[in-house]
Write a protein that binds this DNA or RNA. Structure first.
Lengths: 215, 215
DNA sequence: TTGTCAACATACCGATCAGTATGTAGCCTC
DNA sequence: GAGGCTACATACTGATCGGTATGTTGACAA
């Protein structure tokens, strides 16, 4: 958001921050926000609190950064597909496929992001970080909006079932995002299996939204 | 599980426990397990810790009871439908419709149950309550099994897409269960809207799993 | 009318943990 | 080679919270 005076220092700082974010994502994924201690994140880093608090002002700020990193990757990869070529069905399918794949590739980050700001935060540190909270909710809304627009186009073209776009995207996301609940990465055998799962889920979601031929 | 010597005492005890479970479900839903304090649950009850610890030995035990109550309601209502009449597609549709409706009707309990035992527990109090944990996982597996069997029947009958039943049920549940993430109950206007949402989600999920007519 | 027990409330303890304050080792600069 | 700064580590504090120990009150029993 504000990295501009980039020099060696800033670059190193960004890399150091990113290491912390990755470790934090893993621990947050395992235990959730409240049950994750900064000491546990530090331990996973092979370091101590000092290192983390040198780069982050609070646990909430670190948690937010995980979410932002996850959302930014999704936005960065999916938006071009949405604006690309093909009819609404083709674009939506490509978006879903990429979306599901990213969830599995970046599971820790994405799992944290998908579970979202689950109230655990709103009640607690809401006021302090109200501005950051808004911007994350904004990111999420923007992302859903990208899908909603393609869905809307598909509905207008008569390709998709006749539903309010915002409502149609809910089960669509559900079929895909649910994998963050059940998917457990196995050692080895990964690259093709991930693609296979992504195709299966995408196929399901597309059938759910496409206007069928039978009455 | 062990309520047998039922007398006035046991009956009152069960009712008292159920009140606690309801309040606990609301607070757990809002803040999650770790961020929910027993004092917060007591406050929602208009009571103090003493009341809760009179009936429950620990916070984990209370949390488990919420999950058990939620799973038991689902099992109790959906199993008869699965064993009922109709072909696989008709039964699965009725099950999905009822499932989605229950999620919305009992949102606090069901939201807690859907989010499940999210590791926040496994790491922490796992050993102490290993037995209870197993039985809850068992309940969840049993429930998914009910769906998997109907799905399997539908696949064998050529009604559903040709996928491993366990894999096909994932996005099916996803489309439905995802509502626990986005659904926010509004005052008034409820009874028919809930049914409408349930029908929409069920329709999506059924299209996702039905073998389409177009190639 | 006194004992008993369920059904709580109150008071307290010990552990955990976010955040802070204070070091300190290395590098860079001049 | 002295000051300064970055990138941490270490030590500490204050607050929260799960659990327990100890009341207290009313109903019922005998």
């Amino acid at each position: 958001m504000d990295a501009d005076i980039s020099s060696l220092k800033t670059a190193n700082g960004n890399e150091a921050r990113h290491e912390i974010v990755r470790a934090a994502a893993e621990v947050f994924m395992e235990f959730g926000f409240a049950a994750t201690s900064i000491d546990a994140v530090a331990e996973r880093l092979g370091a101590t609190k000092g290192r983390i608090y040198h780069y982050y002002g609070s646990k909430a700020e670190l948690y937010f950064d995980v979410q932002i990193a996850a959302m930014e990757r999704l936005l960065r990869e999916i938006e071009p597909i949405a604006q690309g070529e093909g009819n609404a069905a083709e674009r939506l399918e490509a978006m879903a496929l990429r979306h599901a794949t990213i969830l599995m590739e970046d599971l820790p980050m994405q799992k944290v992001a998908v579970r979202g700001l689950e109230r655990e935060l709103l009640g607690a540190v809401a006021a302090r970080h109200a501005k950051t909270l808004r911007s994350i909710i904004r990111l999420r809304d923007d992302y859903e909006q990208i899908f909603a627009e393609v869905v809307d186009a598909g509905i207008r073209d008569g390709l998709f079932v006749d539903l309010p776009p915002r409502l149609a995207t809910k089960p669509f996301f559900g079929a895909l995002n649910w994998l963050t609940v059940w998917y457990v990465p196995r050692r080895l055998q990964k690259p093709e299996d991930v693609a296979e799962i992504a195709r299966t889920l995408t196929g399901f979601a597309m059938r759910g939204i496409l206007k069928g031929a039978q009455p």
